[in-house]
């Protein structure tokens, strides 16, 4: 652990440094407009000329007036500490002191990130469970039936080539027309993204026993279901977990994409609302919450994997 801390910190510091530097040219136009309003003389003075000038040139010509680059209210690129403040305000402060916070109302505030992260989490988990179940079933079918492999696999591959942002609104509209709304449409999109890695991994895993292991089962005159339960499924467990880690991250993406057009809460809704109102730090805060959620989910799968493999005796 001690040996890895240095490199990890170095990478984080490098990212933060690049970020802070990038804030200057990204926000230079707004910074200069604000400085001009406060009476400073910026070059060029003409706003139209400024609009057409390059960002780097503006920075170099106005080095004296860049102090506000990291404190703009609606920055194009908010500085990391601004996002940190936004995160703090929309989680701890909102819940502790807000009128709708958990302290004053007894339930999570719908203006806080925790509430929205929770919505996304449940849609993700539900979609992941559906996707994983479907993926395992498809893989079992594909391994046992050549016809199924020929007929299903191409569609599974095609399904993953369609951009999900294009498909998500259609899924939502279709499901709405048959009376399904709320969490389920999001879960369906999330299942749509997560079943594929599970299918691919499980097909490989179910086929991982070598010929002599299958021959051994044959000498016992074992039925196909016995071979599946006693050999193929246990042998596929390590492959399954590798797929689940990809699948759960894909599920999260699916849930967020599913929240974009609906605007009924969730991190996706939060991101879109932020972009409507120019609240970039709200978008970034939601992005970071999503990343944290993804890390937590993948880590949980990893922990489950370690426990399962240890219990199976294969470490």
């Amino acid at each position: 652990m001690k040996g890895t801390l240095g490199p990890v910190l170095t990478v984080i510091l490098a990212i933060l440094a690049i970020w802070y530097v990038a804030c200057v040219p990204m926000n230079v136009r707004e910074v200069l407009s604000a400085a001009e309003r406060d009476g400073a003389v910026v070059t060029p003075t003409d706003p139209v000329e400024r609009r057409d000038a390059g960002a780097v040139g503006l920075v170099l010509n106005n080095t004296a007036h860049l102090g506000a680059s990291w404190s703009l209210d609606r920055a194009k690129l908010p500085a990391p500490h601004q996002i940190a403040v936004e995160l703090w305000n929309t989680t701890v402060v909102e819940e502790m002191t807000g009128r709708r916070g958990i302290v004053n109302s007894g339930s999570l505030s719908n203006r806080g990130l925790v509430y929205h992260a929770g919505i996304t989490l449940w849609a993700t988990v539900l979609g992941f469970v559906i996707g994983t179940g479907l993926g395992i079933l498809l893989a079992v079918g594909i391994v046992h039936s050549r016809t199924m492999e020929m007929s299903v696999m191409p569609w599974a591959i095609v399904s993953q080539t369609i951009p999900i942002v294009a498909l998500a609104p259609m899924i939502i509209v279709v499901l709405y027309s048959v009376g399904l709304q709320g969490m389920l449409p999001k879960a369906v999109i999330s299942a749509y993204l997560s079943f594929f890695p599970v299918v691919v991994g499980m097909v490989k895993g179910l086929r991982s026993p070598d010929q002599s292991q299958l021959d051994l089962m044959h000498t016992y005159n074992a039925s196909k279901s016995a071979v599946l339960v006693k050999l193929r499924l246990p042998a596929s467990v390590p492959y399954l977990f590798a797929s689940l880690k990809i699948g759960i991250a894909a599920s999260l993406v699916g849930a967020i994409v599913g929240e974009l057009p609906v605007q009924q809460g969730g991190l996706g809704a939060r991101m879109l609302a932020g972009s409507y109102y120019g609240q970039t730090s709200q978008i970034w805060a939601a992005l970071i919450a999503a990343a944290a959620l993804a890390a937590l989910l993948v880590w949980s799968i990893g922990a489950l994997e370690r426990r399962t493999l240890r219990r199976m005796g294969v470490v």
Binding site: Q213, T219, P234, A235
Partner: peptide, 17 residues
């Protein structure tokens, strides 16, 4: 089930004792 067969590799399942 007239015979037991022993392969060149022991082929024990690693997840079973």
């Amino acid at each position: 089930r007239a015979y037991g067969y022993v392969f060149q590799a022991a082929g024990l399942y690693p997840w079973r004792t």
